[in-house]
Simulated scan of single mutants.
Amino acid sequence: MLSQILLGLCLLGDSLAAPLVETRQTTTKKCVSPRVRKSWHTLSTAERQAYIDAELCLMSKPGTLGLRGARSKFDEFQAVHVSQAEIAHFVGQFFPFHRLYVWAHEEALRKECGYTGAQPYWDETVDAGAFSKSILFSETPGFGGNGVRNGSLACIQTGPFASYKNPIGPGYKLADHCIGRWISDMATSGASQATVNTCLAKTNYLDFWACVESSTGPHGAGHGGVGADMTNPVSSPGDPIFYLHHTWLDRIWAKWQAQSPEVRLKEIGGNNKPAAAGFPFPGGGGPAGGLPPGFDPGMFFPPFDPRDLARPDDVPEPLVMGDVGTNVTLTHKLQMYGTVPDQTVDEVMDIQGDVLCYDYD
């Protein structure tokens, strides 16, 4: 695990080797009534329950898109992530891809299941260093508690998702399994307000992206702190907490963009593919780089087999469309496999533009 983490940091550094930045002209915005995304901590009990009920609804609805391994509408979103994982991490489109991906999930909650709220986020700065005590892991209304170790699995035992059998994962495998968690408070320091502020202080997209996606930053803290399914770079959306984590990351990006919108709503760059195949996931993290003293990933996460990352023949090769060469451009197409229409990076740079229409509290 430690070698995978260190390799992930190297790959992230490699992906920033070509600091190409592209800009575009500002266009007329169609968004006039943005829905407001709020922190889970501030939602009422009724609002929390409404979100949980909508997610359960997606889990109960049969999939219709013919995506590999997906039985339900919930599974379909996981299948999209599986198909794009190789070109959605350690790359410049990390933020735009996940922004559109979370938007697609939110649209499904509303259109398929009658959800009337906005996609909530998990303000992980509130729980940094103490994920195990977070209200998000309440039995009701919440996402259920920690997993119980049984061999290589750590199945959650409580809450609304305890009985869900996920047919996708781990990684590229297709096998029914529980939703697993193995929460590590030690792995969550990168979610601190101080770390977020450090990232927000970066003056260009490449440095900001590296700060957030690194194993010691907010992205690694959320995945590593929840553990188990969330530490798998391919199939991590099998835990519904994924969407609140990545909505929080999107909020951080939106806040960074808002500091200088005339520049940052037009700025993108970085490699469009990872530097090497078989990338690991940046689990764990410390406040200043490297791992906390005495940190042993094996103590907190179920065993992770790197062979799970070997893409089988029946998984389509992800395509980098719209880019000339190896750098991310504003014309890079983000593929959503029918969950919502595909969009270019340019079309999702603004959360209140022609395609997206939301704000944060």
Rank of each mutant, 00 (worst) to 15 (best):
G180S: 08
S215T: 14
K165F: 02
I168N: 03
E213W: 05
F161Y: 15
S192G: 09
Y164V: 04
G222S: 10
N204D: 13
H223C: 09
S152H: 08
A194N: 14
L200I: 13
K173G: 11
C178V: 03
N146C: 02
D176C: 04
S184C: 15
G159E: 02
G220W: 07
P167K: 11
M186C: 09
Q157M: 07
Q193W: 00
R149N: 04
P167E: 09
V212D: 11
D185I: 07
I183P: 08
C155R: 10
H223S: 12
C199G: 10
F161C: 00
P170Q: 07
I179E: 02
G220H: 08
G159Q: 01
L206I: 14
V212H: 12
N150E: 08
S215G: 13
Y172R: 09
G145S: 09
Q193M: 01
G151P: 04
T203W: 09
G190Y: 11
S214N: 14
Q157G: 06
W182Y: 03
A201W: 10
S152P: 12
A210H: 11
F208A: 05
S152L: 03
G225A: 11
G171R: 06
E213D: 10
T158S: 15
N146W: 03
R149I: 02
K165T: 04
Y205I: 01
G190Q: 14
A175E: 12
I156G: 04
P167F: 06
A187Y: 13
V148R: 09
I156W: 15
N197E: 13
A201S: 15
S215D: 05
D185E: 11
C155M: 05
S152K: 12
